[in-house]
Design a protein around this nucleic acid. Structure first.
Lengths: 291, 291
DNA sequence: TTTATTAAGTGCAAAAATGCACCCCCTTTG
DNA sequence: CAAAGGGGGTGCATTTTTGCACTTAATAAA
């Protein structure tokens, strides 16, 4: 059964004639005639008596009319609830953010966003993988990347600068300049080739020890006086008790992108969030560069 | 909004993929892709995430799914209740029958019909007009006609024979052969040119008095001894106290048709009733011809 | 690794639905 | 009574929808 034909049936039943119903639907009356004929054939029952006074429901037609009215009510409900939902600033938006940004940079901004759009709930996940965007496990992702995949859309919002950090207490006991061998550099597996980064190359003699697979872990380790590590400046510079290792510069590294699936660019929540967070990254420029 | 697209939406949501949904619907998967895209555009919201694992509902899609399911249930109800209603022998059937047939010939047959098809209720109206079929005030009409209108379908089931009747008592006091002037012939207005009928022409000298616009009225008048009148043989021959006027033959007159609107010929109740009643007319052939 | 297999998107021809002009019928009205 | 107006039905050109062959992409099996 063609559901749309029931819509046409309803229109004719209300207008009590083809021409009037047709003008309401913005169609030609001959189309309605054919559609209603088709409907009658599929249900195997005449629905209207074609009198000279117009189209009048048969007994079966009146029965169908009741069901069709219920159906129309449900469609009306759909139109109220769902129509243009993407254009509304309400509901849930799921964001994935790398650990460091989430805990040390953006949380106040997310708080502000939720205050500004009280109907929107922001759901934050901490991950590094790009995959969750393709799988729609998230709506928006903030990512380190040089060139994001073709399938994603978004913009570059800044660049993270790194430097070498340690706790003040650690540096009191260990001098990386005069006695590098007695210091230790916190490792991060082989991921990201972190040992080739400029801030480490400045201290080639410091041995690498430990493997902490997260910037926040490294930060925590530094705070505990475990050693020296390269950290984003926005983390190291704003943590009490932590200082840059003497002689270490702020070195530019990963570009930061705010990304979403291309399909999502028509979604008001997503666009608004991306614009908002991009603007906040501009404000954070100095913290990112470490100046 | 195209209601049929919601049907397609449901199919895809259930099948979790275009191809599977397409085969269920007997359509091509590309069509479904286009239709669901159209639906998403009209509601202004994405309904599915196109993952590599298949089509997965978005949050909005899940919401629509609930409403769509209600709608489908209602359509299912329609299919159960209404589908093929015309093919079922149940419900109401409205018949119009000329007075005389109704009261003096067919009532036992209608009784039998209702006993045979207990789910069918026969509604009987006594009229002569052909109009009520066009206006759908009746489903079936039994009519006197030479050639029924083009718009109607049906068959000729017999011919009514007329003769001149009077009550036995009346004929005892009035002799139409020897003293025709003292008799009286019951008139029927100018309708049907009844005075030109052969049974009257045999008695040209009998004066016409009164105007009784119905065969049953004429019969009642005869029974009361009001005079002589032409009556259908099936009425006159089977009424106690009534006899043919001496010398009056049974003269063939109106053809009898069982008719229905052409549209109605697909309706099982109508066809069955027409067949039934036609067969009964065959049985009544002798009563009609007055032999 | 290569090779099937499955599912979804693209360009074009066939098929179907639509709109249009025209016709008929009926009713209304001057 | 004639003419107008509102409906509804029919044949044909146009637009839209559909299906098909093909390509692409991803997964699973060999």
């Amino acid at each position: 059964m063609n559901w749309d034909n029931v819509k046409i049936f309803l229109a004719i039943a209300h207008a009590k004639g083809l021409k009037k119903a047709a003008s309401k639907l913005g169609m030609h009356h001959t189309s309605l005639a054919r559609r209603i004929k088709a409907l009658e054939e599929t249900v195997g029952t005449r629905l209207f008596d074609r009198l000279t006074s117009g189209y009048v429901l048969t007994e079966t037609g009146r029965e169908l009319f009741l069901s069709a009215t219920k159906i129309r009510d449900e469609f009306n409900a759909i139109e109220c609830d769902i129509l243009g939902k993407d254009n509304r600033l309400e509901g849930n938006i799921c964001v994935t953010i790398p650990n460091g940004f989430a805990t040390h940079l953006l949380m106040p901004d997310i708080t502000d966003f939720m205050a500004l759009y009280p109907e929107v709930t922001v759901e934050v996940n901490m991950t590094y993988a790009m995959k969750d965007l393709a799988n729609r496990e998230a709506d928006v992702a903030i990512r380190h990347a040089d060139y994001p995949p073709e399938s994603l859309a978004g913009k570059r919002v800044g660049r993270v600068y790194f430097s070498a950090y340690a706790s003040k207490l650690y540096l009191k006991d260990n001098d990386p300049l005069s006695k590098p061998e007695s210091c230790q550099w916190l490792g991060w597996g082989d991921a990201s080739e972190h040992l080739n980064w400029p801030e480490k190359k400045k201290f080639p003699l410091i041995p690498v020890r430990g493997n902490l697979y997260s910037d926040v872990l490294q930060l925590a380790a530094i705070q505990e006086g475990m050693g020296i590590a390269s950290l984003p400046c926005f983390m190291g510079d704003n943590t009490a008790g932590i200082v840059r290792v003497p002689g270490a510069d702020a070195v530019p590294r990963d570009w930061i992108w705010v990304l979403a699936h291309k399909d999502m660019m028509t979604n008001a929540k997503v666009r608004t969030f991306m614009d908002f967070i991009s603007e906040r990254f501009e404000r954070h420029a100095n913290r990112l560069t470490g100046t």
